[in-house]
Design a protein around this nucleic acid. Structure first.
Lengths: 116, 116
DNA sequence: ATCATCTACAACCATTTGGTTGTATGTTAG
DNA sequence: CTAACATACAACCAAATGGTTGTAGATGAT
């Protein structure tokens, strides 16, 4: 990422974090209930360290948080971050809708088909 | 991307495409009205070829399409792709909501504070 | 106290990304 | 026809990504 990070309120990291299927799966699993990192790691055909890194990416994107419980680290998804991503998509869609509205208002300016 | 691409219906490419601020800006600008690649390129502090690559990434993610018009190539945003991304986020949020509902139903199972 | 478990983190490696420049090709204007 | 413009695409490069292994520190169980 070239940009320096405050530019977009973390949207870069947010969407980047979402662009990996393992990470999306982690979000799904943890949404059903907090899971320790090692519990998660057992689910994927990769090393513990790899999963640890994925969790770190999710954490830095704000999509999960970790809380210690004994020797385990429980991962919890943070739905607020998902909401932020959604709002970003809404904003993009709004630009497009604005265009549609502009086109519609052109159409509306045309007189409706004459009522009989 | 390690995964082989049909696994997720293109969500990897979709979110990856959205994870760059230049590309999100291209989407915004083209949403207001189709723009040629060179018109777009003029807006960013990078080479024409770099912008061309960004457009290609957006195109392969399904977020834009290009149509030729004379010697120009007009870029148009494809809101359906944005909708796909939104549905993916909704699905993730639904998992979390499911959890909340499960917690709620646990609470509901508890007897209400005794009525005197 | 010892041992097994969970986590953290560094070092390393192959591939991908995001950028560059340069060259070639097609299209429109004069 | 020729010149200018818009695009396409290859080759190259530095940095980031996604993975590995290995080492070390905490914590819990016996």
């Amino acid at each position: 990422m070239v940009v320096d990070d405050a530019d977009d309120g973390g949207l870069n990291r947010l969407f980047h974090a979402l662009s990996d299927p393992t990470r999306r799966d982690v979000l799904r699993r943890c949404a059903r209930g907090d899971l320790s990192v090692s519990r998660l790691a057992a689910e994927y055909p990769m090393s513990f360290a790899a999963v640890q890194k994925h969790v770190t990416v999710l954490e830095q994107a704000g999509l999960v948080s970790k809380r210690r419980s004994g020797r385990e680290q429980l991962v919890r998804t943070e739905p607020d971050a998902l909401a932020r991503a959604r709002r970003a998509l809404d904003e993009l869609e709004a630009h497009w809708r604005g265009r549609v509205e502009r086109m519609s208002s052109l159409l509306e300016r045309e007189p409706p088909t004459r009522e009989p």
